[in-house]
Design a protein around this nucleic acid. Structure first.
Length: 417
RNA sequence: CGGGGCGUGGUGUAACGGCUAACAUGCUCGCUUUGGGAGCGAGUGACUCCGGGUUCGAAUCCCGGCGCCCCGACCA
Protein backbone atom coordinates (compact mmCIF):
# COMPACT_ATOMS: atom_id res chain seq x y z
CA UNK A 1 0.00 0.00 0.00
CA UNK A 2 1.06 3.53 -0.71
CA UNK A 3 0.50 6.18 1.90
CA UNK A 4 -0.67 8.59 -0.78
CA UNK A 5 -3.60 6.30 -1.50
CA UNK A 6 -5.01 6.48 2.00
CA UNK A 7 -7.47 9.33 2.14
CA UNK A 8 -6.99 9.67 5.87
CA UNK A 9 -4.57 12.35 7.01
CA UNK A 10 -2.02 12.25 9.76
CA UNK A 11 -2.48 15.49 11.65
CA UNK A 12 0.20 17.63 13.13
CA UNK A 13 -1.86 18.39 16.22
CA UNK A 14 -3.94 16.21 18.46
CA UNK A 15 -7.64 17.05 18.65
CA UNK A 16 -8.39 19.19 21.66
CA UNK A 17 -11.81 17.79 22.41
CA UNK A 18 -10.27 14.54 23.55
CA UNK A 19 -8.04 14.14 26.52
CA UNK A 20 -7.77 10.40 26.59
CA UNK A 21 -4.51 9.35 25.09
CA UNK A 22 -5.93 6.53 23.01
CA UNK A 23 -8.43 8.77 21.24
CA UNK A 24 -5.88 11.54 20.71
CA UNK A 25 -3.38 9.18 19.15
CA UNK A 26 -5.86 7.26 17.05
CA UNK A 27 -7.50 10.40 15.69
CA UNK A 28 -4.26 12.28 15.12
CA UNK A 29 -2.72 9.36 13.25
CA UNK A 30 -5.83 8.92 11.12
CA UNK A 31 -6.99 5.55 12.40
CA UNK A 32 -10.41 6.59 13.60
CA UNK A 33 -12.89 9.39 13.18
CA UNK A 34 -15.02 10.63 15.99
CA UNK A 35 -18.69 10.92 15.08
CA UNK A 36 -19.95 12.04 18.48
CA UNK A 37 -19.30 11.30 22.11
CA UNK A 38 -18.66 7.61 22.49
CA UNK A 39 -19.09 6.85 18.79
CA UNK A 40 -16.12 6.31 16.51
CA UNK A 41 -15.82 5.31 12.87
CA UNK A 42 -12.90 3.26 11.64
CA UNK A 43 -10.77 4.69 8.84
CA UNK A 44 -8.75 2.38 6.57
CA UNK A 45 -5.84 2.01 8.98
CA UNK A 46 -8.10 1.58 11.98
CA UNK A 47 -10.15 -1.02 10.17
CA UNK A 48 -7.02 -2.99 9.38
CA UNK A 49 -6.04 -3.03 13.03
CA UNK A 50 -9.57 -4.01 13.98
CA UNK A 51 -9.62 -6.85 11.44
CA UNK A 52 -6.26 -8.09 12.67
CA UNK A 53 -7.55 -8.19 16.23
CA UNK A 54 -10.67 -10.01 15.06
CA UNK A 55 -8.55 -12.58 13.25
CA UNK A 56 -6.69 -13.36 16.43
CA UNK A 57 -9.91 -13.68 18.39
CA UNK A 58 -11.59 -15.71 15.68
CA UNK A 59 -8.70 -18.13 15.53
CA UNK A 60 -8.99 -18.89 19.21
CA UNK A 61 -12.76 -19.15 19.12
CA UNK A 62 -12.54 -21.69 16.32
CA UNK A 63 -9.96 -23.61 18.32
CA UNK A 64 -12.43 -23.74 21.18
CA UNK A 65 -15.00 -25.30 18.93
CA UNK A 66 -16.89 -22.11 18.25
CA UNK A 67 -19.24 -21.66 15.31
CA UNK A 68 -19.47 -18.16 13.94
CA UNK A 69 -22.90 -16.65 13.45
CA UNK A 70 -24.25 -13.16 13.04
CA UNK A 71 -27.37 -12.10 14.83
CA UNK A 72 -29.49 -9.03 14.27
CA UNK A 73 -29.09 -5.69 15.97
CA UNK A 74 -32.81 -4.95 15.99
CA UNK A 75 -34.35 -6.89 18.81
CA UNK A 76 -37.80 -8.07 19.72
CA UNK A 77 -38.86 -6.72 23.13
CA UNK A 78 -41.12 -9.70 23.82
CA UNK A 79 -38.15 -11.96 24.37
CA UNK A 80 -36.56 -9.52 26.77
CA UNK A 81 -39.78 -9.05 28.70
CA UNK A 82 -39.77 -12.80 29.39
CA UNK A 83 -36.51 -12.49 31.30
CA UNK A 84 -37.44 -9.10 32.75
CA UNK A 85 -34.62 -7.25 31.04
CA UNK A 86 -36.67 -4.83 28.94
CA UNK A 87 -37.96 -2.43 31.54
CA UNK A 88 -35.85 0.75 31.81
CA UNK A 89 -36.05 0.35 35.57
CA UNK A 90 -34.22 -2.96 35.28
CA UNK A 91 -31.84 -2.21 32.46
CA UNK A 92 -31.10 1.46 32.05
CA UNK A 93 -28.92 1.55 28.98
CA UNK A 94 -31.18 0.33 26.21
CA UNK A 95 -31.42 2.24 22.99
CA UNK A 96 -35.06 1.80 22.07
CA UNK A 97 -36.71 2.69 18.82
CA UNK A 98 -40.07 2.18 17.12
CA UNK A 99 -41.55 0.81 13.96
CA UNK A 100 -43.80 3.12 11.91
CA UNK A 101 -46.77 1.49 13.57
CA UNK A 102 -45.38 2.36 17.01
CA UNK A 103 -44.22 -1.15 17.91
CA UNK A 104 -41.18 -0.86 20.15
CA UNK A 105 -37.85 -2.37 19.18
CA UNK A 106 -34.51 -2.52 20.92
CA UNK A 107 -31.01 -2.07 19.54
CA UNK A 108 -29.09 -5.02 20.91
CA UNK A 109 -26.91 -4.29 23.90
CA UNK A 110 -26.09 -7.97 24.30
CA UNK A 111 -27.53 -11.18 22.85
CA UNK A 112 -28.27 -13.73 25.56
CA UNK A 113 -32.03 -13.61 25.14
CA UNK A 114 -32.27 -13.72 21.36
CA UNK A 115 -29.73 -16.50 20.98
CA UNK A 116 -31.51 -18.68 23.53
CA UNK A 117 -34.86 -17.99 21.87
CA UNK A 118 -33.36 -18.80 18.48
CA UNK A 119 -31.85 -22.06 19.67
CA UNK A 120 -35.21 -23.40 20.79
CA UNK A 121 -35.71 -23.99 17.05
CA UNK A 122 -32.51 -26.00 16.74
CA UNK A 123 -31.67 -27.76 20.00
CA UNK A 124 -33.71 -30.72 21.20
CA UNK A 125 -31.55 -33.69 22.08
CA UNK A 126 -28.49 -34.36 24.19
CA UNK A 127 -26.84 -35.20 20.89
CA UNK A 128 -27.22 -31.56 19.83
CA UNK A 129 -24.99 -30.35 22.68
CA UNK A 130 -22.67 -28.87 23.65
CA UNK A 131 -22.44 -25.96 21.21
CA UNK A 132 -20.45 -22.73 21.22
CA UNK A 133 -21.86 -20.16 18.84
CA UNK A 134 -20.13 -16.78 18.68
CA UNK A 135 -20.32 -13.60 16.69
CA UNK A 136 -18.77 -10.23 16.09
CA UNK A 137 -21.60 -7.81 16.52
CA UNK A 138 -22.19 -4.18 17.25
CA UNK A 139 -23.60 -3.52 20.68
CA UNK A 140 -25.53 -0.39 21.51
CA UNK A 141 -25.45 0.86 25.05
CA UNK A 142 -26.96 4.12 26.12
CA UNK A 143 -24.26 5.01 28.59
CA UNK A 144 -25.03 8.02 30.76
CA UNK A 145 -21.51 9.10 30.18
CA UNK A 146 -19.15 7.77 27.60
CA UNK A 147 -15.53 8.32 28.39
CA UNK A 148 -11.94 7.30 27.90
CA UNK A 149 -12.07 7.57 24.12
CA UNK A 150 -12.45 4.23 22.39
CA UNK A 151 -12.74 2.40 25.67
CA UNK A 152 -16.30 3.13 26.63
CA UNK A 153 -18.41 3.76 23.60
CA UNK A 154 -22.13 3.81 23.07
CA UNK A 155 -21.75 1.71 19.94
CA UNK A 156 -18.97 -0.83 19.76
CA UNK A 157 -18.07 -4.09 18.13
CA UNK A 158 -17.87 -7.06 20.44
CA UNK A 159 -17.12 -10.70 20.09
CA UNK A 160 -19.67 -12.55 22.16
CA UNK A 161 -19.61 -16.30 22.51
CA UNK A 162 -22.30 -18.30 24.25
CA UNK A 163 -21.80 -21.80 25.54
CA UNK A 164 -24.58 -24.33 25.95
CA UNK A 165 -23.68 -27.41 27.93
CA UNK A 166 -25.57 -30.45 29.18
CA UNK A 167 -24.33 -30.47 32.74
CA UNK A 168 -22.72 -28.20 35.24
CA UNK A 169 -19.56 -30.23 35.00
CA UNK A 170 -19.45 -29.98 31.23
CA UNK A 171 -20.08 -26.26 31.55
CA UNK A 172 -17.32 -25.70 34.08
CA UNK A 173 -14.81 -27.58 32.04
CA UNK A 174 -15.55 -25.42 29.04
CA UNK A 175 -15.48 -22.27 31.14
CA UNK A 176 -11.91 -23.07 32.15
CA UNK A 177 -10.94 -23.74 28.55
CA UNK A 178 -12.49 -20.44 27.54
CA UNK A 179 -10.51 -18.68 30.25
CA UNK A 180 -7.30 -20.15 28.83
CA UNK A 181 -8.33 -19.18 25.32
CA UNK A 182 -8.87 -15.62 26.48
CA UNK A 183 -5.44 -15.46 28.01
CA UNK A 184 -4.01 -16.84 24.78
CA UNK A 185 -5.79 -14.07 22.86
CA UNK A 186 -4.39 -11.36 25.10
CA UNK A 187 -0.96 -12.83 24.77
CA UNK A 188 -1.20 -12.73 21.02
CA UNK A 189 -2.49 -9.16 21.10
CA UNK A 190 0.62 -8.16 22.99
CA UNK A 191 -1.17 -7.68 26.29
CA UNK A 192 0.34 -10.66 28.09
CA UNK A 193 2.41 -8.51 30.41
CA UNK A 194 -0.59 -6.51 31.50
CA UNK A 195 -3.62 -8.78 31.71
CA UNK A 196 -4.68 -10.51 34.90
CA UNK A 197 -7.51 -12.90 35.56
CA UNK A 198 -9.68 -10.95 37.95
CA UNK A 199 -12.53 -12.14 40.12
CA UNK A 200 -15.43 -9.76 39.88
CA UNK A 201 -19.12 -9.34 40.41
CA UNK A 202 -21.39 -11.22 38.04
CA UNK A 203 -23.81 -8.31 37.84
CA UNK A 204 -27.36 -9.48 37.56
CA UNK A 205 -26.25 -12.76 35.97
CA UNK A 206 -24.51 -14.41 38.85
CA UNK A 207 -22.68 -13.73 42.04
CA UNK A 208 -19.29 -13.71 40.33
CA UNK A 209 -17.74 -13.43 36.92
CA UNK A 210 -14.22 -13.57 35.61
CA UNK A 211 -12.81 -10.39 34.18
CA UNK A 212 -9.61 -9.89 32.26
CA UNK A 213 -8.07 -6.67 33.45
CA UNK A 214 -5.19 -4.94 31.71
CA UNK A 215 -3.12 -2.86 34.11
CA UNK A 216 -3.15 0.76 32.98
CA UNK A 217 -3.45 4.16 34.56
CA UNK A 218 -6.03 4.92 31.90
CA UNK A 219 -8.30 2.22 33.26
CA UNK A 220 -11.65 2.80 34.91
CA UNK A 221 -11.47 -0.16 37.26
CA UNK A 222 -9.65 -0.61 40.53
CA UNK A 223 -8.35 -4.07 41.22
CA UNK A 224 -6.29 -5.63 43.98
CA UNK A 225 -3.47 -7.70 42.58
CA UNK A 226 -2.04 -10.76 44.28
CA UNK A 227 1.32 -10.86 42.55
CA UNK A 228 2.27 -14.30 43.78
CA UNK A 229 -0.90 -15.86 42.49
CA UNK A 230 -0.88 -13.62 39.42
CA UNK A 231 -4.58 -12.98 39.84
CA UNK A 232 -6.61 -10.08 41.07
CA UNK A 233 -9.89 -9.24 42.69
CA UNK A 234 -12.06 -6.33 41.63
CA UNK A 235 -12.71 -3.60 44.17
CA UNK A 236 -16.44 -4.20 43.78
CA UNK A 237 -16.16 -7.51 45.64
CA UNK A 238 -13.04 -6.89 47.69
CA UNK A 239 -13.68 -8.35 51.17
CA UNK A 240 -12.14 -10.82 53.62
CA UNK A 241 -14.68 -13.42 52.73
CA UNK A 242 -14.25 -13.10 49.00
CA UNK A 243 -10.48 -12.97 49.07
CA UNK A 244 -10.53 -16.20 51.04
CA UNK A 245 -12.94 -17.74 48.58
CA UNK A 246 -10.61 -17.08 45.64
CA UNK A 247 -7.44 -17.88 47.54
CA UNK A 248 -6.13 -14.35 47.40
CA UNK A 249 -3.94 -13.13 50.21
CA UNK A 250 -5.66 -9.93 51.27
CA UNK A 251 -2.64 -8.77 53.24
CA UNK A 252 -0.39 -8.80 50.23
CA UNK A 253 -2.50 -7.32 47.47
CA UNK A 254 -1.54 -4.16 45.63
CA UNK A 255 -4.10 -1.66 44.41
CA UNK A 256 -3.92 -0.95 40.66
CA UNK A 257 -5.96 0.74 37.98
CA UNK A 258 -6.94 -1.37 35.03
CA UNK A 259 -8.93 -1.66 31.84
CA UNK A 260 -11.52 -4.41 31.60
CA UNK A 261 -10.58 -6.02 28.30
CA UNK A 262 -12.75 -9.12 28.65
CA UNK A 263 -15.45 -10.60 30.83
CA UNK A 264 -16.86 -14.10 30.99
CA UNK A 265 -19.94 -15.27 32.85
CA UNK A 266 -21.36 -18.45 34.17
CA UNK A 267 -25.06 -17.90 33.57
CA UNK A 268 -26.30 -21.16 35.04
CA UNK A 269 -29.58 -22.41 33.65
CA UNK A 270 -31.53 -19.21 34.10
CA UNK A 271 -31.87 -18.02 30.51
CA UNK A 272 -32.56 -21.42 28.93
CA UNK A 273 -35.06 -22.24 31.69
CA UNK A 274 -36.89 -18.96 31.36
CA UNK A 275 -37.02 -19.06 27.59
CA UNK A 276 -37.90 -22.76 27.33
CA UNK A 277 -34.67 -24.03 25.89
CA UNK A 278 -33.95 -27.55 27.16
CA UNK A 279 -32.84 -30.93 25.89
CA UNK A 280 -33.99 -34.50 26.21
CA UNK A 281 -31.43 -36.89 27.67
CA UNK A 282 -30.72 -40.56 26.95
CA UNK A 283 -33.49 -41.56 29.33
CA UNK A 284 -36.01 -39.37 27.57
CA UNK A 285 -35.99 -36.88 30.44
CA UNK A 286 -36.15 -33.17 29.89
CA UNK A 287 -33.02 -31.45 31.23
CA UNK A 288 -31.88 -27.87 31.84
CA UNK A 289 -29.09 -26.41 29.77
CA UNK A 290 -26.08 -24.69 31.33
CA UNK A 291 -25.11 -21.46 29.71
CA UNK A 292 -22.10 -19.17 29.71
CA UNK A 293 -21.30 -15.94 27.92
CA UNK A 294 -17.87 -14.70 26.88
CA UNK A 295 -17.34 -11.13 25.79
CA UNK A 296 -14.44 -9.16 24.41
CA UNK A 297 -14.74 -5.70 22.90
CA UNK A 298 -12.79 -5.12 19.71
CA UNK A 299 -12.65 -1.34 19.96
CA UNK A 300 -11.62 -1.56 23.55
CA UNK A 301 -8.64 -3.70 22.58
CA UNK A 302 -7.61 -1.01 20.10
CA UNK A 303 -7.96 1.63 22.79
CA UNK A 304 -6.14 -0.41 25.43
CA UNK A 305 -3.28 -1.23 23.09
CA UNK A 306 -2.99 2.40 22.02
CA UNK A 307 -2.76 3.38 25.68
CA UNK A 308 -0.21 0.74 26.55
CA UNK A 309 1.85 0.83 23.37
CA UNK A 310 2.69 4.40 22.59
CA UNK A 311 5.29 6.99 23.42
CA UNK A 312 5.76 10.72 22.98
CA UNK A 313 6.17 10.22 19.23
CA UNK A 314 2.95 8.29 18.74
CA UNK A 315 1.59 4.79 18.37
CA UNK A 316 3.60 1.57 18.53
CA UNK A 317 1.59 -1.41 17.30
CA UNK A 318 2.51 -4.94 18.29
CA UNK A 319 3.35 -6.89 15.12
CA UNK A 320 0.32 -9.15 15.37
CA UNK A 321 -2.13 -6.34 14.88
CA UNK A 322 -0.18 -3.60 13.12
CA UNK A 323 -1.91 -2.31 9.98
CA UNK A 324 1.33 -2.90 8.06
CA UNK A 325 4.52 -4.62 9.11
CA UNK A 326 7.02 -2.30 7.48
CA UNK A 327 6.98 1.30 6.33
CA UNK A 328 9.49 2.32 3.69
CA UNK A 329 10.43 5.98 3.85
CA UNK A 330 12.30 7.72 1.04
CA UNK A 331 13.71 10.48 3.19
CA UNK A 332 14.44 13.00 0.47
CA UNK A 333 12.14 13.89 -2.39
CA UNK A 334 14.80 13.61 -5.07
CA UNK A 335 14.48 11.08 -7.82
CA UNK A 336 17.30 8.79 -6.81
CA UNK A 337 16.11 8.28 -3.25
CA UNK A 338 12.49 7.87 -4.29
CA UNK A 339 13.32 5.31 -6.94
CA UNK A 340 15.38 3.36 -4.49
CA UNK A 341 12.55 3.42 -1.94
CA UNK A 342 10.20 2.20 -4.63
CA UNK A 343 12.55 -0.70 -5.39
CA UNK A 344 12.68 -1.74 -1.76
CA UNK A 345 8.91 -1.48 -1.54
CA UNK A 346 8.37 -3.67 -4.57
CA UNK A 347 10.94 -6.22 -3.40
CA UNK A 348 9.35 -6.51 0.03
CA UNK A 349 5.92 -6.88 -1.49
CA UNK A 350 7.19 -9.67 -3.68
CA UNK A 351 8.36 -11.38 -0.53
CA UNK A 352 4.83 -11.25 0.79
CA UNK A 353 5.50 -8.59 3.39
CA UNK A 354 2.66 -6.21 4.19
CA UNK A 355 4.50 -3.00 3.49
CA UNK A 356 3.50 0.64 3.36
CA UNK A 357 5.40 3.05 1.12
CA UNK A 358 5.72 6.63 2.32
CA UNK A 359 5.39 8.17 -1.11
CA UNK A 360 4.25 11.65 -0.20
CA UNK A 361 6.51 14.63 -0.65
CA UNK A 362 7.72 16.52 2.37
CA UNK A 363 10.49 17.51 4.67
CA UNK A 364 12.69 14.76 6.04
CA UNK A 365 11.65 15.68 9.55
CA UNK A 366 8.00 15.53 8.67
CA UNK A 367 8.41 12.09 7.16
CA UNK A 368 10.24 10.73 10.16
CA UNK A 369 7.78 12.04 12.68
CA UNK A 370 4.82 10.89 10.65
CA UNK A 371 6.28 7.41 10.35
CA UNK A 372 6.76 7.36 14.11
CA UNK A 373 3.23 8.59 14.72
CA UNK A 374 1.74 5.80 12.62
CA UNK A 375 3.36 3.14 14.77
CA UNK A 376 4.30 0.65 12.05
CA UNK A 377 6.71 -1.77 13.83
CA UNK A 378 9.62 -1.51 11.41
CA UNK A 379 10.81 1.48 9.42
CA UNK A 380 13.10 1.16 6.43
CA UNK A 381 14.63 4.54 5.81
CA UNK A 382 16.11 5.20 2.41
CA UNK A 383 18.27 8.31 2.37
CA UNK A 384 20.97 10.05 0.38
CA UNK A 385 23.37 9.40 3.20
CA UNK A 386 22.60 5.69 3.27
CA UNK A 387 22.77 5.30 -0.49
CA UNK A 388 26.35 6.56 -0.52
CA UNK A 389 27.25 3.45 1.45
CA UNK A 390 24.72 1.26 -0.26
CA UNK A 391 22.81 0.72 2.96
CA UNK A 392 19.37 1.23 4.32
CA UNK A 393 18.48 2.12 7.82
CA UNK A 394 16.20 -0.30 9.63
CA UNK A 395 14.58 1.22 12.67
CA UNK A 396 12.61 -0.64 15.26
CA UNK A 397 9.77 1.68 16.23
CA UNK A 398 9.47 0.28 19.71
CA UNK A 399 13.11 0.01 20.80
CA UNK A 400 14.28 2.82 18.52
CA UNK A 401 17.24 0.65 17.68
CA UNK A 402 18.75 1.16 14.27
CA UNK A 403 20.59 -1.35 12.14
CA UNK A 404 21.92 -1.04 8.63
CA UNK A 405 21.18 -3.52 5.88
CA UNK A 406 21.99 -3.84 2.24
CA UNK A 407 19.37 -4.23 -0.44
CA UNK A 408 20.34 -7.89 -0.64
CA UNK A 409 19.71 -8.38 3.09
CA UNK A 410 16.27 -6.85 2.75
CA UNK A 411 15.30 -8.91 -0.26
CA UNK A 412 16.43 -12.03 1.56
CA UNK A 413 13.89 -11.16 4.22
CA UNK A 414 16.52 -10.43 6.78
CA UNK A 415 14.65 -7.81 8.73
CA UNK A 416 14.53 -9.46 12.10
CA UNK A 417 15.22 -7.16 14.96
C1' C B 1 -28.16 11.60 36.39
C1' G B 2 -25.47 15.44 40.03
C1' G B 3 -21.12 18.80 39.74
C1' G B 4 -17.25 21.59 36.96
C1' G B 5 -14.98 23.47 32.38
C1' C B 6 -15.38 24.77 27.28
C1' G B 7 -17.79 25.92 22.13
C1' U B 8 -14.31 31.45 16.98
C1' G B 9 -11.61 29.21 9.21
C1' G B 10 -10.01 21.93 8.34
C1' U B 11 -6.67 22.03 12.99
C1' G B 12 -4.60 24.92 17.35
C1' U B 13 -5.45 29.71 19.35
C1' A B 14 -6.33 35.51 19.82
C1' A B 15 -9.62 39.61 20.01
C1' C B 16 -11.76 46.08 26.14
C1' G B 17 -19.20 45.92 24.39
C1' G B 18 -16.73 49.67 19.02
C1' C B 19 -12.73 49.81 12.15
C1' U B 20 -13.36 44.80 7.11
C1' A B 21 -13.02 39.02 13.40
C1' A B 22 -6.50 38.50 14.10
C1' C B 23 -2.29 34.90 14.35
C1' A B 24 -0.21 30.15 13.53
C1' U B 25 -0.82 25.75 11.03
C1' G B 26 -3.11 23.13 7.01
C1' C B 27 -4.48 23.33 1.82
C1' U B 28 -3.35 25.52 -3.64
C1' C B 29 0.47 27.84 -7.01
C1' G B 30 5.71 29.43 -7.73
C1' C B 31 10.79 29.47 -6.06
C1' U B 32 14.19 27.60 -2.52
C1' U B 33 15.30 23.64 0.92
C1' U B 34 15.86 18.18 2.64
C1' G B 35 18.21 13.57 9.06
C1' G B 36 13.27 15.40 13.24
C1' G B 37 7.15 19.22 10.91
C1' A B 38 12.86 24.75 7.38
C1' G B 39 12.34 29.56 4.28
C1' C B 40 10.34 33.50 0.80
C1' G B 41 6.20 35.18 -2.14
C1' A B 42 1.07 34.82 -3.88
C1' G B 43 -3.68 32.63 -2.90
C1' U B 44 -7.65 29.71 -0.26
C1' G B 45 -10.52 29.27 3.85
C1' A B 46 -15.48 31.60 9.52
C1' C B 47 -23.48 33.21 9.07
C1' U B 48 -17.80 33.40 15.90
C1' C B 49 -22.73 26.09 17.96
C1' C B 50 -28.29 27.31 17.66
C1' G B 51 -32.46 30.50 19.31
C1' G B 52 -33.97 34.65 21.93
C1' G B 53 -32.83 39.17 24.86
C1' U B 54 -30.06 43.82 26.51
C1' U B 55 -27.64 47.82 23.53
C1' C B 56 -26.79 53.07 18.86
C1' G B 57 -23.52 48.74 18.43
C1' A B 58 -22.58 41.68 20.75
C1' A B 59 -17.56 36.64 19.27
C1' U B 60 -17.70 39.45 23.91
C1' C B 61 -23.14 40.78 28.55
C1' C B 62 -28.03 37.99 30.01
C1' C B 63 -31.65 33.76 29.34
C1' G B 64 -32.78 29.05 27.06
C1' G B 65 -31.29 24.97 24.16
C1' C B 66 -27.66 21.72 21.84
C1' G B 67 -22.73 19.78 21.69
C1' C B 68 -17.78 18.35 23.60
C1' C B 69 -14.37 17.23 27.74
C1' C B 70 -13.47 16.16 32.95
C1' C B 71 -14.96 14.48 38.23
C1' G B 72 -18.65 11.56 40.62
C1' A B 73 -22.66 7.96 40.32
C1' C B 74 -23.62 3.89 36.91
C1' C B 75 -21.42 -0.03 34.00
C1' A B 76 -25.14 -6.87 31.76
Amino acid sequence: MRLSQYFSKIKKDAPKDETSRNAQLLIQAGYVHKEMAGVYSLLPLGLKVSENIKSVIRKHMEKLGGQEIHMSSLQNPEIWKTTDRWDDEKVDNWFKTKLKNDTELGLGMTHEEPIVAMLTQHINSYADLPIYPYQFQYKFRNELRSKSGMMRGREFEMKDMYSFSRTEEEHKKFFEKAKDAYMAIFKELGLADYVLVTHASGGIFAKYSVEFQALSEAGEDIIYVDEEKNEAINKEIFSDEECAQFGIDKAKVIEKKSIEVGNIFNLGTRFPDTLDLAYTDEKNQKQSIWMGSYGIGVGRQIGAIAELYSDEAGLIWPKEIAPHQIIVVGLQDDKEVQEEAEKVYVALQKNGVDVLLYDKKGQAGEKLSTADMLGIPTQVIVSKRGLLEGKFEIKNRKTKQVTYKTFFDIVEGDLKD
